[in-house]
Design a binder for these strands. Structure first.
Lengths: 197, 197
DNA sequence: CTCTTTTTTTATCGATCACTAAAGAAAAAG
DNA sequence: CTTTTTCTTTAGTGATCGATAAAAAAAGAG
């Protein structure tokens, strides 16, 4: 019971997420959040805790709603080579998109770490490492299933893919074109030597 | 004439540069700069202008003192393939170095842009694009000199190299090992198809 | 020495930061 | 209705942000 919320939690959370995505954690002030969320400070704090927990909530939401293509690409393709190609291709489309901020919240949302552990930066770092690990796992699966040569290092190939994805975020924010990055993605997969059995 | 400075400009500039390198523009406060530079605010402002111009001065200094290997790699090698390989290899050593902050100031020093033009972010963006352009020029030179096939796109190959370099900065900050990144670098150059004439 | 110039020190400035206490308002429960 | 609970509004908190005014101090010029 009690007075009901005058706002839709999902709606204001999406607005906060977009702002964090555009500006990053540090450059986004609570005044900015108040403005885009249309809320007064006590409403924000009562609903989402402090700025740091709000960011973590937004980061989780980002992974759920805007990074689904990662798991999708890694699970819905028959071979590891096709999975990695689709992953990079979908990453480009996600990073250079007309209706979304450019780049990736997980890569560019909180670069620097004022505090050592549990800060916003560490939350994103864990997501980055989880993505790289998932790529490695998919390549290893390809080796077990026979579509990837045994002599390639799944760990190193995955690290290259993750590196390119992370570089794409900077490229996208610097204004790189969708077509250009697709060509770069196609170029990059050639380096992995996954498709030759 | 007048009272001489009590500090060495070069020395305190290096200390400011290191702090910006570690924490980035936004996360570095003037209090932090005062502490590491050992100066009171009026001395900083008299010598270097405001925080933004101090950052630009540090960025220029970074490019001069810590990014010299880029031009070096692109000019001191006989072929484009060797130049790119050395560029990526030296980048890894520069980004994962015991006596320096991890990663690259130009890539990770100021991600987000409060103001549209002339901000710290734009200064770094120009340096990033200049680096990519220099790589493209070197590859084109390789094509003219015959050590790079004509059918490769120098622009796209350069964009992949720049993308990998930018991704390396995130990888380095996330704790990636020097050896691992060297393997990734070797893997990446295979994608370019530069060496096969 | 005095005068001039520049730097350093001291003590702030107003603005904004993340955050909250207290009172008023809107719902369900009795 | 009144009471209870929860949320919103209003108005602020102390802290820190980037930046500066004014006076004291240290050099050379005469």
């Amino acid at each position: 019971m009690g007075r009901p919320k005058s706002f839709d939690v999902d709606d204001v959370l999406e607005k906060a997420l977009r702002l964090f995505w555009e500006r990053g954690y540090e450059a986004t002030s609570l005044s900015d959040l108040e403005r885009v969320m249309g809320l007064r400070p006590p409403s924000i704090y009562a609903a989402f805790g402090n700025k740091e927990t709000l960011f973590k909530t937004c980061a989780d939401r980002y992974v759920e709603r805007y990074s689904g293509y990662v798991v999708e690409a890694l699970t819905k393709e028959p071979t590891a080579a096709e999975a990695v190609m689709r992953l990079l291709s979908d990453t480009v489309d996600a990073y250079v998109h007309d209706t979304q901020p450019r780049g990736c919240l997980v890569v560019s949302g909180a670069i620097h770490c004022p505090d050592m552990d549990e800060g916003p930066r560490l939350v994103l770092e864990q997501y980055r490492k989880a993505t790289e690990a998932a790529i490695a796992t998919r390549i290893e699966r390809g080796q077990e299933e026979g579509d990837v040569p045994r002599d390639v290092s799944a760990t190193m190939a995955a690290k290259l893919v993750a590196t390119v994805m992370q570089g794409f975020s900077t490229q996208a924010r610097d204004g790189a074109g969708n077509d250009d990055l697709h060509r770069v993605a196609k170029l990059a997969v050639g380096a992995l030597g996954l498709s030759a059995v």
